[in-house]
Design a protein around this nucleic acid. Structure first.
Lengths: 243, 243
DNA sequence: TTTAAATGTCTATTGATATAGACAACTATA
DNA sequence: TATAGTTGTCTATATCAATAGACATTTAAA
């Protein structure tokens, strides 16, 4: 842990400390006790006032990561980080496997629109051709994990929103629409700060980090069937690439 | 762009705005003029005072991304984002290709130590076995891109630090030590906030984002030869995975 | 039942962040 | 050479973030 906090950076000390503690928890640093060290210890460790540590812990409690109990200490409530393997056969829902008891995928909105340059490049179609656009949120055990915007060629997958709403799965929706199998062609990964909309949708602390993937899925002939930009809560997930 | 800024989040408005503008620049939003919009326009856009925008621009100028010229406007100095393909044949230096004129790899420090649990798992050796540890920084055209901590089995690659210092390349250093080829086995990607040490080493704005990769390279027989944890400046890079 | 150790609450003070307005200085152009 | 449009500087004020200290309240263990 250690590593001092920085002052006058535009990021409040309590937020920096909250980020550090969240990280330490998910790295298993406090597994022995199942508790965060006492406020006075943390204050000494980070070289700040106890009240500043309290602000940090209050933020983590707000996120549901810890629960402070007067007289006992601050208990760790949640420490998981979901792992997403990125392979040729990347699947969102089944990829989670036993890491969560329940995965839900919710369709927030959908529309038919004309492909812009970015989408057209991903789907290998001409700009202006009709595409289905879907905005989705995926949750693991009720906890939001990612927001995604996905585009499908309208000619082939006009029924996508309906099928997705019913099946809550891209894989199953594709199957209903006659595509029994598909593969991940390319994935592009970046990281940015969450904006307001994603902060709300993902129930994040403001200023949180998003891992962004831009992915293209194709059918077995290599024809693109889906282009998706997904925004993952960085402190809840990791990606693994097996080569 | 748009998307309002958030108040009372522990992240100062000027920092949020700086992050947005940096992102917009790298997305090419201001390519037509090569300039950031006037302060008054940005202030209106973000719904903040002009002075707040000025703080944001001052931070970006500090990073060398923009340069404000009295009477003219705020010129964009730099907007590149390096792309790192992650494949079975991932190479750092040659992977950059023509994206930068000059790549340099600097060895900050090295030591021989005993493998801890994490390193032992990566290198598939027993905890406690001797490993060479190297701390490195890699720069593209003089701009720091990543910090890395790398471990090698000491028995086989004792000469690694020397060879790396001379060749400034893992690939060439391996070659000098008799390993003509190697492949990327696994890569794990996460994102966190930069701590103080990395902020300094990577010349980052405090509160910046790091993309973290944990990677295992093996020889052609599948025996691990390197385990590395790299920390990339998230606003300077992206990863692509081709399947 | 004490006591130590932990979190919870309150008051006060200082420094950083943000707003507001006015005006100076510089640049490019009509 | 004006003038519009831009960045630079200054003062003042309000709010948030951080420190400091004192003491209350709760829990678990001696």
């Amino acid at each position: 842990m250690a590593g001092q906090v920085q002052r006058q950076t535009g990021v409040a000390l309590w937020r920096q400390i909250a980020d550090r503690i969240r990280q330490a928890i998910s790295a298993g640093a406090y597994d022995e006790t199942g508790m965060v060290p006492p406020e006075t210890v943390l204050a000494l460790q980070f070289g700040v006032n106890r009240h500043t540590v309290r602000s940090a812990i209050a933020a983590l409690a707000q996120e549901g990561i810890v629960r402070a109990v007067q007289g006992r200490g601050t208990l760790i409530e949640r420490k998981e980080r979901l792992n997403f393997p990125i392979t040729r056969r990347t699947r969102f829902t089944s990829g989670i496997g036993e890491q969560a008891r329940e995965m839900r995928a919710l369709l927030l909105s959908h529309s038919e629109e004309k492909a812009d340059a970015d989408v057209a490049r991903g789907l290998k179609i001409r700009p202006g051709e009709p595409v289905i656009r879907m905005e989705t949120v995926r949750k693991a055990d009720g906890r939001p994990v990612s927001c995604a915007t996905a585009w499908f060629p309208a000619a082939r997958f006009g029924g996508m929103p309906d099928a997705y709403k019913r099946t809550e799965s891209i894989t199953r929706a594709f199957a209903e629409l006659g595509l029994s199998d598909y593969v991940r062609s390319t994935t592009e990964i970046t990281a940015i700060h969450a904006d307001e909309a994603d902060t709300i949708a993902l129930e994040l602390a403001p200023g949180a980090i998003l891992l962004i993937t831009k992915a293209v899925n194709t059918d077995l002939e290599g024809v693109p069937v889906q282009y998706a930009i997904s925004r993952f809560a960085a402190d809840r997930v990791q990606f693994t690439i097996e080569n």
